[in-house]
Simulated scan of single mutants.
Amino acid sequence: MTELRILQEITQYQNDFFNTFARIFTFIGNEEFYFLMIPFVYWTLSRRIGFSLFYVFLLSAFVNSFIKITMAIPRPVGTEGIESIFVESAEVGSHYPNDAFPSGHAQGSSALWTYLALVVRHPLFTGFAVLLVLAISFSRLYTGLHWPSDVIAGLVIGVAIAISGYFIFLRIHKIPAIVFLIAAILIPAGMLWLLPETEGFQYGGILIGATLGFVFQLMWLPELTETSWLRKIIAFILGIVITFSLQSGLKIVFPDPLIFEALRYAILGIWITYFAPALFLFLRLNRQKQSIHFP
């Protein structure tokens, strides 16, 4: 059965009931969701896991954009016999509609949830992660926004990046801090050079900012102790409100050249990994230990 025929078979079952679930899974695979998920892990659970998740996900997003722009495969949108819905979720790329392969939703979700499953190592969480990734991936077929090969490739690449990132971050504590800092800045800088498009400047910029903020927090902010979940939720809500305010506000203030897009996202990155935790500490939404050390 051809990919066209597969999509025609799947999309014929679209209805209001199934569309509701497709909309939910589409959002869970969108950039906005990850701007909620990754800071939540970083601010409330673990800065180390949060930062490594940040890096794994954004490297995956960069690889996805690089392949999409290089391959330039058209999406099935507008193809006869295929009804595409929620098209706005696909129009975020700078090269839409020639950006089908691989699926960003499939790759992003498989990278993030595979990495978390490797960290958590609990059968129930792993099962949940697998089902969620499959649901997000299938939703891209149901909505008629990707070919089956796009989704399969996205799943494979995302899992491969997550596994590679997991084993790299297991050993990263053995690397001297200065070497880690240089490498962590050179990698995003290389992303700007390899992909001089909007996506490259966004992903490279936010990783540079996030890396600097992470190192600054380890060096200058006190080691934090556990605090109540009420304080954590208040801190998270405050942090997210400021994050989205910065994202939209700076877009209005900064001019159009892509270098300012990189600067905007770098500010977002350093806010998430350094200034937000510093603010939470100042407002006593986090507690601190007596000693300061580099974990």
Rank of each mutant, 00 (worst) to 15 (best):
R264I: 09
F125R: 09
K232Y: 00
L186E: 10
T114C: 08
F280Q: 10
I38T: 04
Y13I: 06
S60K: 06
W147K: 04
Y142P: 01
H122F: 11
L230A: 13
F57I: 06
Y203Q: 14
L45M: 14
Y96L: 01
I233W: 11
S103L: 03
L112Y: 10
A129M: 03
A184V: 11
G205W: 04
T2M: 02
L58R: 13
D99T: 08
F66S: 05
P196Y: 06
A111C: 02
E197P: 01
S245M: 13
L36A: 12
T198K: 15
F54G: 04
A72D: 08
Y142S: 01
G29T: 03
G205K: 11
T227P: 00
F254Q: 06
V151Q: 03
F167G: 04
Q217D: 15
K251F: 09
A129P: 01
T20F: 13
S139W: 01
Q217E: 14
T44G: 03
I267Q: 07
E88Q: 13
V92R: 15
L250I: 04
L4Y: 10
Y115C: 07
L132V: 07
A266E: 09
F128T: 08
S60N: 14
I178D: 12
G108S: 07
E31T: 15
A210F: 01
T143N: 12
L192V: 09
F25W: 08
Q14D: 02
Q217S: 15
V156R: 05
F101S: 06
V133T: 10
L53N: 06
S94K: 08
D150T: 06
P277Y: 12
V179L: 14
T70A: 11
L263R: 05
T26L: 00
Y96M: 07
L132P: 00
I178C: 07
V179H: 12
I82M: 06
A106Q: 04
I85A: 03
N286T: 12
S84K: 06
V215G: 02
L285F: 05
Q8H: 02
I272R: 10
S94T: 12
P123V: 07
S149I: 09
I172L: 14
A129W: 04
Q107R: 03
L238W: 05
P255V: 08
F86K: 00
R5I: 11
S248D: 12
Y115M: 04
G81R: 06
E226L: 15
T243Y: 13
T2L: 06
A183N: 09
A262T: 06
N98C: 05
I237W: 04
Y115Q: 09
I161G: 00
G209M: 07
L250M: 08
R287N: 15
I252R: 11
S137N: 02
L221R: 09
L281G: 08
P39G: 10
I168V: 15
D256E: 14
T225L: 10
E223F: 14
E197Y: 13
V120N: 05
I67S: 08
P97Q: 05
A262D: 05
R121L: 11
R231P: 01
V87A: 07
P277R: 11
F57T: 14
F33V: 00
F138K: 01
K251Y: 11
T79L: 15
